Computed example of a mutant assay.
Amino acid sequence: MSHLRTDPRTSAAVRGSGWAGNSPQAEQLLSRLGHDERVELLFVTLRYQGALTPRRLLLWRGVIRVECTEIPRPLRLLGESRSSFGGTVVLAGPGGAIELKPLPAPAARVLAEAGRSADDASTPAPAGRRTVTADYTSGAPRAEPGTAEPSAYHPRVIRTWQDAELAAVDHMRSLGFADARVTGAGADGGVDVVARDAVAQVKHYSQPIGVGPVRELRGVADAHQHLLFYASGGYTTTARQFADERGVALYSVAEYGHITPLNEAATRLSARPSPAPSSSWSQAAAWGREVSAVRASRRAAELDAQRQTVLRLIARVRAHTSEIHALPSNRYTKDRIRALKAAHKLIERAESMLAKSQADFQTHGGRKHLIAMADEKAREAALKLGMSA
């Protein structure tokens, strides 16, 4: 007989739940429960096995390598839907939004009530704020009547990487980056969404994002820009540490469009004050455009000066590499010809990077990064020829 059926803490909830009494999840559940902690609900979804107690919600994921997530009560309900095929409940977890689906109607009702009771007990939201709940049946957002807000973020169902990028655009606009737009497939240079003062990368992967893509975003961005990263599969510990050190805002994107801040930088961005209203807004916007234009002009001049420095070094190296065809091929010139050919290849790569740095789709940070790489290749070429860089 199953231990879950005989244990008084779980016997009332196990019938019809889909839990197997001899599974690793069942063993972990019994070992984690307190002496007087009784289970109110056991359920199984596509991704999770769950157990709800008066103190917490325990969620297990995986078959071979079982991982457990604990969410203390009161639960925070982000959204819910019910249909003839079952219910869906979206809860806030330690690593972002957690979607539980499909759920039997009674299980969905119990979890939703556990979340709603927490909302009812919390402090009412300030005037002007509203709650948006995604209508999962139709895929369209649903808001409380009479409280629409143009800049508010509307969750959308995420089925493809294009959906994820569009959700990131909508979310960035809700944070105040009104000019956020998708850069376009194949021409992003490491950036998927760009605004005047922010850049973002979006990864619609099922696996956690490592430190590489986060470092790439930091490398192509301007020092004055906000950096945002959106991922569907979470982040590795190394990626989180790097993001915290470099001020990259990490967000989790759930399947039904809920976006959750995962670190301090993301929380700060999400808590930024909204733009100045009506009368003062146009004046502030005009002043901001003027300051932005001056800054952009200054940065463009700095980049042009750096580019000219690299071009002068390339011209000096080219003057030496022109000797390749003039030298006789013998054992005395063999090493010299090899060095000249290697320097010639490095110079070609440097020129290619300089040309790419002038492409329209590149951000200021991307141009700066490419010019720095071109300078590095040109200096390496000069060193191969014994020249002073």
Rank of each mutant, 00 (worst) to 15 (best):
T6C: 09
P8M: 10
S11M: 07
S11G: 06
S17Y: 03
A20W: 06
A20P: 00
E27A: 13
Q28H: 13
Q28W: 05
Q28L: 10
R38K: 04
E40M: 03
L41E: 05
F43G: 00
T45R: 00
T45F: 04
L57F: 01
W60Q: 05
G62Y: 12
G62E: 12
V66L: 13
E67H: 14
I71F: 04
L77E: 04
G79D: 14
G79A: 10
E80H: 11
S81Y: 08
S81R: 02
S84Y: 12
V89H: 10
V90G: 06
L91T: 08
G95Y: 13
A97L: 05
A107F: 05
A107L: 04
R109C: 09
A114I: 02
S117L: 08
D119I: 02
R130N: 09
V132R: 09
A134G: 13
S138K: 06
G139M: 08
A140H: 09
R159C: 10
D163Q: 09
F177P: 01
A178W: 05
A180S: 15
A185H: 14
R196M: 12
D197A: 15
Q201C: 04
K203A: 14
Y205S: 09
P208C: 12
I209S: 07
P213C: 13
P213Y: 14
V220Q: 05
Y230H: 03
Q241K: 07
F242P: 00
E245W: 01
R246V: 02
G247E: 08
V248N: 04
V248I: 11
A249F: 08
A249G: 15
P261Y: 08
P261K: 10
N263I: 03
A266F: 03
L269A: 05
P273V: 13
P275S: 12
P277C: 11
W281E: 09
Q283E: 15
R289F: 13
A293P: 00
A293I: 00
R298T: 00
E302Q: 08
L303Q: 13
L311W: 10
L311E: 15
L311H: 11
I314S: 13
V317T: 06
V317I: 11
I324E: 12
I324A: 13
H325V: 06
Y332D: 13
R336W: 01
K341V: 07
K345H: 11
E351T: 10
K356Y: 13
K356Q: 14
A359N: 11
A359I: 02
G366H: 00
A372L: 05
K377E: 15
E380A: 15
A382R: 02
L385F: 04
